[in-house]
Amino acid sequence: MDWTLLGQQLANGVVNGMNYVLISTGLTLVFGVLRVINFAHGEFYMLGAFLTYFAMSALGIGYLPAVLLATVAVGALGILVNRLFFWPLRKEHEFTVLLSSLGLALLVTHGAELGFGHDPKYLNSPFTDDILEVGTIVLTQQRVLIFAAAVLVLAATYAAIRWTTFGRMMRATAQNPEGAALTGVDIRFVHTITFVLACGLAGLAGALVGPVAMIFPTVGSWAVLKGFIVVILGGLGSVPGALVGGLTLGVVEALAGGYVSLGFMEAIGYAIIILVLLWRPQGLFGSVAR
């Protein structure tokens, strides 16, 4: 057994997993609080990456300020998206809302193809090519940054949901929307802020992960697919579920890719889902009573 290789693959898996967690937390929040399955979630990941790219090239600012700007901008876009696509449909059938989100996804992707061009772009972060050696494990600074930023942001998000009044409003809305309204929760405000949070998190993920690969207008469909795998694995609507689900998927993919074959990596992701759902149809952290 080559322990260095194992350690390296575990590190790869944990970093990728944290990225998945960042993508899927917003997705699971939007489902948990608003009962909306948002197929357009990946587009905010894409927009986060592209806005960072254009903030750097057009405004001439550095990578980190651009990440911040893009995250805030994509978060703010959440207000508009909720207002135009989701709030007006809140009393419609779930399927209508789902179709609306699918339409939004297509709209944003095609808009991006027209506006940004079809060609892939490289989001240039100063940390991408710099290698950090921790013992025998090699990681780029960018990957360490992704991991650290994700831990920080997710801890803050989790604490806010757990311990602030707004967090209580979100949870109350998730558990009983009508009861929440009769307790004085401004449901519309909760919807708006939840979308802002979800979009902001997706945007941040795109801005941070963008430099690790290439960015192109259809990259969102990859992100939303991974997001759904994690969310189904962890339990729809559960934030701790997204954390465990994301890390599990990252590590299992790395071990499967590293010791079986990368070609099976994707298949293995689906295989775990099937196994988990056979054992717990509600996902790892989903509660049966909804």
Binding site: T4, L5, Q9, L225, G257, S261, E266
Partner: peptide, 18 residues
């Protein structure tokens, strides 16, 4: 082998490098 939609190849490259 990698898949058509993969965006991260670190796992495979780590293995090949070793």
């Amino acid at each position: 082998f990698y898949n058509r939609n993969d965006t991260d190849f670190t796992v495979a490259l780590t293995k090949l490098k070793s």
